[in-house]
């Protein structure tokens, strides 16, 4: 039987690939979004910042910030899922991914439901792949704040996947 890979090496490889995806997209830093990983599950956090407020009277998060946050979560989730198998099989050259040769999915359409006002606090989101084909993918994203059961926004989007042979 093959000896299991040391846990440190597994975590290091996964975290390196994830941070390579995230650090390459300037807009993620602009919005202040970060990703936590547990196994293959990603949770995005948009850290609260006064610049994210759209309605200063309430105050409530800007709908555009919320939409952007959910779309980022979908794109990173989709890219992460598409790299997962190759990454686990050791077929990915982490150096190449880090050098910015990563092709990202393109958004075809994105629909956001604003369920309640976004509070001036950190927001969290997770993406679920409804269907991920060779060319097209459908992704659902849920966003919440204090309570996982009480979503403040959700979204569904369709994406055009990058050509597989040119993936990395």
């Amino acid at each position: 039987m093959k000896k299991p890979e040391p846990v440190g090496a597994v975590k290091h490889r996964r975290d390196t690939v994830l941070s390579a995806i995230v650090s390459q997209i300037p807009y993620i830093r602009f919005l202040g979004v970060s990703f936590d990983r547990h196994g293959d599950e990603l949770t995005a956090t948009m850290a609260y910042h006064p610049d994210l407020i759209g309605n200063p009277m309430l105050p409530a998060l800007h709908g555009g910030a919320t939409a952007s946050f959910l779309e980022i979560t979908a794109i990173v989730g989709l890219t992460w899922a598409s790299l997962w198998e190759d990454m686990e099989a050791g077929n990915i050259d982490v150096g190449t991914v880090q050098q910015g040769a990563l092709l990202l999915p393109k958004t075809i359409d994105f629909t956001v439901d604003y369920l309640r006002a976004g509070l001036p606090r950190d927001a969290y989101a997770r993406a679920v792949l409804n269907r991920s084909g060779r060319r097209y993918a459908s992704v659902h994203v849920e966003g919440w704040q204090d309570n996982r059961q009480r979503l403040f926004a959700q979204a569904t989007g369709h994406f055009l996947m990058p050509p597989r042979d040119a993936k990395h």
């Binding site: 390459q24 919005l31 980022i72």
Partner: peptide
């Protein structure tokens, strides 16, 4: 700072969404 795709330097869709929402 609004770039969504580092290879093509194209602006992130979210930034366009935010503009249209505004």
């Amino acid at each position: 700072a609004l770039i969504g795709d580092p290879v093509t330097k194209v602006i992130h869709g979210g930034a366009v969404s935010a503009l249209m929402d505004t």
